[in-house]
Design a protein around this nucleic acid. Structure first.
Lengths: 216, 216
DNA sequence: TTTAAGTCGACCAGGGTGGTCTAATTGCGT
DNA sequence: ACGCAATTAGACCACCCTGGTCGACTTAAA
């Protein structure tokens, strides 16, 4: 099989990209079972024969895409996070910024990953399923580990404050993404949104962190 | 057509319910196009002929379900909200509680409504599309209108505080629903969750509302 | 000119589709 | 007890789309 995938990998990058994006989108929208190889080749602008020349089967194509996505998310997103940052808001801001950047670079990968994370081990060899679990774990740690909760206001359960801050930031991110549907992420000037975002963060800090002027 | 749907409506309620739930679930999971009438009749335990005896076509079945869901959401959820409540947290709490109750009563309706809200006007006569728009509008008003923002802390943009509180509450609700997947909502004792929820609300109030003891 | 890699899309068998129809059963009015 | 109409089941239909194959054709290198 590697012999065959090699055929795909020795294509010029732009062609690989076209095919990959078409396939990622098809699987992202329809899931494994209902994805259609016919639609993929049409969207990619290649003949049916080529897809099965590059990949022996739908299954193999799917596995290739999962592998590709895992590597992309790892290298373009998770690896760039500074896990040493103890301040929750700083950490989440970093996560948000890096995720947004990675998403702007290849939105389909993230949409597709939502699908295979949800579809689970079906259609996948355990070797790949294990890698997915690894990634999940890794993401979880990046979000929850090594946060200094002593900065939160003392009159509230820090665990809960932690969650409230996370939900707030997720909420903003989600709403922004919804507001931006239809536009190409890569072409958007995010500066004003980051400004807006920082205004929200300032309120979060004022509200949930121990205030410095308390000794007045 | 009404003549034909009447056949369905004069069935005994429990049978109507079985068929309706099977159809709601099928459309909720697969969307209009990919939903299968074969799977519906199998899940409902009736013969193929019956479905097209009660409803002339897949299309008509779909429209019936949309109509049913709109009425359900309106009467079992939106109509029960007290739009006079000016306190944001109270209002959102009410919304959350009523939605949870309605969802426990018929979860499929909510899953299905997510689908037809997203699929939009496709497969629907404008008359029904208009009703959907009405419902959206109505829900929007219930969430945003008549809120007294003067209760928020004065040192932050009330608009932003408003959003932060909403995102927090949505976040909790979403996470709870995720934690509870697989269980029958109707069989769950929500008491401990409400307690937890109120603890979050207390923190939100402490953090985002004008504190009463500021004049100390 | 020969050879081999690359490319295409018509084609295949199989399975699923929404919808129809026949034939059997049931229930009711008499 | 009879007959008629309402109800029911599922075999069946023509059609469409599926993943995958294959032979014909082009290109490029040797």
């Amino acid at each position: 099989m590697d012999i065959i995938i090699a055929r795909f990998e020795s294509l010029e990058e732009s062609k690989q990209h076209t095919i990959r994006q078409a396939a990622l989108e098809e699987f992202a929208v329809h899931g494994y079972k209902k994805a259609s190889t016919n639609r993929i080749v049409k969207a990619a602008g290649i003949g049916k024969g080529m897809l099965f020349y590059y990949f022996t089967s739908k299954q193999e194509l799917y596995e290739y895409l999962v592998k590709y996505s895992l590597e992309f998310i790892q290298s373009r997103y998770l690896d760039r996070v500074d896990a040493g940052e103890p301040d929750l808001i700083e950490r989440l801001t970093q996560l948000a910024r890096l995720k947004m950047e990675a998403q702007a670079e290849n939105e389909e990968v993230f949409k597709f990953s939502a699908v295979f994370l949800q579809e689970g081990e079906t259609h996948l060899p355990k070797e790949l399923a294990a890698k997915i679990e690894e990634l999940k774990q890794s993401g979880y740690q990046l979000m929850y580990e090594g946060i200094d909760q002593s900065r939160f206001r003392k009159d509230a359960d820090p665990e809960k404050v932690f969650h409230l801050i996370r939900w707030s930031i997720d909420g903003y991110q989600q709403e922004l993404l919804a507001r931006l549907t239809g536009q190409k992420l890569a072409e958007i000037d995010f500066a004003p949104y980051w400004e807006e975002f920082y205004a929200y963060l300032a309120i979060l800090k004022k509200s949930f962190y121990e205030t410095e002027e308390e000794s007045r």
